[in-house]
Amino acid sequence: MFKNTSYFWLALALIVVEIFILDQLSIAMWLRPMIFPLIIILLPMEWRTIWVLMVALVVGIVMDMSLGGAGLYTATLLPLAVVRSSVMYLTTRRGVEPGDQTPLLSRIAMRQMMIFVGAMLLIHHALFFSLEAMSVALLWQLVATIVMSTLLSLVIAWPIVRLFISKIVR
């Protein structure tokens, strides 16, 4: 119960930070950090995909309604829910086993965790900016936006990830 409440507060905090701080930043056209995908990334890996999908749907709709995404946020968040387990296995070679006693996220080394979070953010940013641009006319600008924004998002998200895993998940 405590953990579920923590997830709710984490989601709320990330959404608020995204809407009121990160979305208001105008550092550069190609530097647009987004950390709200952490809501999906940090959900317990033991959860069934359908529930993760439902959370992604709710978060996506909230973001679309708040930032006028008209479906863009939902469309780019839903795939994260589906590929989450596969990306976890590909980046850490770890998966949920039937006899596990502790949450998978708590058993992963921090370096592997960073690769996993980075990969998930990269997938989200690539989908988001590609769908937003809907064009490859300025391909290098698109690639730069994806890469630089992912790196900045990871830098901002990493302390949150560490704090959340050490204080809540473990």
């Binding site: 999908l53 479906g71 839903l78």
Partner: peptide
Amino acid sequence: VFLLLEVAALWSY
């Protein structure tokens, strides 16, 4: 379910 939701979101966008 994923495909239905994704198509709906993409259509909306």
